[in-house]
Computed example of a mutant assay.
Amino acid sequence: MAKYSGPVCRLCRREGEKLFLKGSRCMTEKCAIERRSYPPGQHGQARQRTSDYSLQLREKQKLKRIYGLQECQFRGIFERAERQAGVTGDTLLRLLECRLDNVVYRLGFGASRKEARQLVNHGHMMINGRKVKAPGALVKAGDSVEVRQKSRELLPIQGALAAVDGRGIPEWLELDRTACKGTIRSLPTKEHIVLPVNEQMVVELYSR
């Protein structure tokens, strides 16, 4: 499936939730959900038929869009979660949260996950002192994620760090703003991950 390149605010409207795909804009009255909370398109305000399948599909689509993944990427992460011990839904969320692009976003180096992914792709980020250009790289407890020395004065990074207080840093991460460095204190648990998604419905969808 081709990568979506249209306006991301339509995705939030389609799911009826703020997915925080546009960084600080999502916190203002300019957010599309605040202005038009119904799905986009000619029939957006019509009554929608619902079924178990459609509800499960919408939960999967929300989760994919929050983390900016295509179907093949998301399916691969789900299959990895399914092979691991424990509750599949909880493991799925943990694997998604431990992706490097998400950690860069959570630490406040990027205003959105899309921007964080771009920072990783362009070689601005390091894990344990080594440059990593794979947004899907998984971090472990004890790892350090930092901005390369020559990239620390970039305006997008400085702007995102200035706005991070309004979003907050998760408990499982620790940020040193002066050094532009974050530490993975522990792997995230279900209690640490607050998302408008019912992950169990995603598991049920893939188990059909």
Rank of each mutant, 00 (worst) to 15 (best):
L154T: 01
I66A: 01
D52I: 04
T178I: 07
N198I: 10
D52V: 08
K150P: 03
E17A: 15
F20M: 01
G159E: 15
T178M: 03
R177V: 14
Q149E: 15
K181C: 03
G123R: 06
V8L: 08
C12N: 01
F74G: 02
R83F: 07
Q118W: 09
F109V: 12
S207K: 10
L69Y: 04
T189H: 09
K150F: 06
E153W: 05
T91F: 01
T28K: 13
Y67V: 10
S144K: 15
A179D: 11
T183G: 04
L69D: 00
A137K: 11
K64W: 14
K18P: 02
R185M: 14
R177H: 12
H122N: 03
A162W: 12
G182E: 02
E146I: 05
L96F: 10
C12G: 02
A141D: 13
V145A: 04
V139T: 10
K22M: 05
K133R: 14
G182V: 08
E79N: 10
A162P: 04
R177D: 06
G168Y: 10
V203N: 03
L173Y: 08
L119D: 00
A163Q: 14
C180M: 03
S24M: 14
L175H: 10
A179K: 14
G142R: 07
I127M: 14
Q56M: 15
A163M: 12
L107V: 15
V139Y: 00
S186D: 08
L175N: 09
R113I: 01
L69G: 01
S151T: 11
Y67S: 04
K3S: 13
G76S: 15
R65I: 07
V164C: 03
N102G: 06
R47H: 11
E34V: 15
A81Q: 02
L187P: 06
S186N: 09
S144T: 15
E199T: 15
N121Y: 13
A116M: 07
C72A: 11
R13L: 01
L161N: 00
D143R: 05
K30E: 14
A2G: 05
Y105F: 13
L205I: 05
I157V: 14
R113T: 02
Q118F: 10
S5Y: 08
Y105D: 00
L195K: 06
M1Y: 05
Q61S: 09
S207A: 08
R36W: 11
E79R: 11
A141E: 15
K30T: 13
R99N: 11
G41H: 14
C31L: 02
N198M: 05
V103K: 00
V164L: 07
M1F: 11
F78I: 06
L11I: 15
G23E: 01
I127W: 10
K60E: 04
I33H: 11
V139A: 00
H43V: 05
Q149W: 13
A134S: 07
L173C: 02
T28M: 11
L92V: 04
G168I: 12
E204P: 00
A85I: 13
T28P: 07
R25A: 03
D165M: 10
R106A: 12
K114F: 07
S144P: 02
L107Q: 03
Q45S: 14
A111D: 07
G23V: 02
Q56P: 03
M1C: 04
Y206R: 05
G123S: 07
R167E: 08
C26N: 11
E199M: 06
L107M: 08
K190Q: 12
G159A: 12
V139C: 09
H192S: 14
S51P: 05
R58C: 03
